[in-house]
Every structure is written in structure tokens, then in C-alpha cells.
């Protein structure tokens, strides 16, 4: 992993949102890779070389819950932040119990806030 540029994986099936997030994060100096579904996300995560995984919950092939479960079983300790439009409290609880570091409802978060959250979470990682 490069010392200066932090590599982030965005697992999100909506290309529109992927584009906005990826562009903005690259602009902020991150190295960004994307996965369109759960399987792809799992494959990319296998190398374990990301500073952060941004994970959607509703995705084809493998949903976000399954990805988290798999990662937990594989002992892959890449920090995961969940960005979803599911806003029920039970979903949040389940995701957190599966080891996610944060849970954000996409429609309720501004893109600037999202960037702040990502920065905050990757900063912690390098310090640790």
C-alpha cells in the first residue's frame, strides 16, 4: 500500500452513484477502485490491500450482508463503511454486528459529509 495515496474500494451497483463518489474521492487524493456487485467486491477484497471498503447493501449476486459475513469468515480486516438506502434500525444493528465501522443512509448524507467520513476513517487507519 502506498504511503501517500490510500486505496479505496467502492462496492455499489448504481453506476451513477459510483461515478459521483469515485470522481470526488479521486479529486480528494484517494486511489479508487469499484465493484459492481457482491462477487466482484469479494474478489477484489481478497488481496486485502484496501484502506477502506465502501459497501452498499442491496447489490446483485451477493448482497452487502453476505459480503460482510464472508469477510468475517475470511478474517479480512479491511475497515468497512456501509452506505445504503435501507434506513431501518435492524439493518444497522445487523451490519454493525457483522463488523462494519459505520452505517450511513445515502439520501440523508451530503457528498461533502461523505468525504469527511472517508477521510476520518482512513486517517485512523494510517495512524494505527
Amino acid at each position: 500500500m502506498s504511503q501517500n495515496t490510500k486505496k479505496i474500494l467502492i462496492a455499489e451497483d448504481d453506476p451513477f452513484l459510483v461515478k459521483i463518489m469515485a470522481n470526488r474521492l479521486r479529486e480528494e487524493g484517494f486511489e479508487v477502485e469499484t465493484a459492481n456487485d457482491g462477487d466482484e467486491a469479494m474478489q477484489k477484497v481478497k488481496g486485502c490491500s484496501y484502506a477502506l471498503l465502501m459497501l452498499d447493501l442491496i447489490m446483485p449476486n451477493k448482497n452487502g450482508f453476505e459480503v460482510l459475513q464472508q469477510m468475517k469468515e475470511d478474517h479480512c480486516n479491511i475497515p468497512v463503511l456501509v452506505f445504503t438506502n435501507l434506513s431501518q434500525e435492524e439493518d444497522k444493528e445487523e451490519v454493525m454486528s457483522l463488523g462494519a465501522k459505520g452505517y450511513y443512509v445515502k439520501s440523508d448524507i451530503a457528498i461533502d459529509e461523505l468525504v469527511e467520513v472517508i477521510k476520518e476513517n482512513t486517517k485512523e487507519k494510517t495512524e494505527a
Binding site: F16, L17, I20, R24, I58, N85, K106, S107, I111, L114
Partner: peptide, 20 residues
Amino acid sequence: SHQLRTPLTGIKWLLQEIFR
């Protein structure tokens, strides 16, 4: 509601980006 939110999010973020 969930399906509506996703495109709305896209619009929201896009507008914010343009504005920014």
C-alpha cells in the same frame, strides 16, 4: 421508497458537486 431514494441521492450529490 428505497428504489426512489437511490436516484434522488444521485441527484442530490450531483447538484451538490456542481454547486461546489
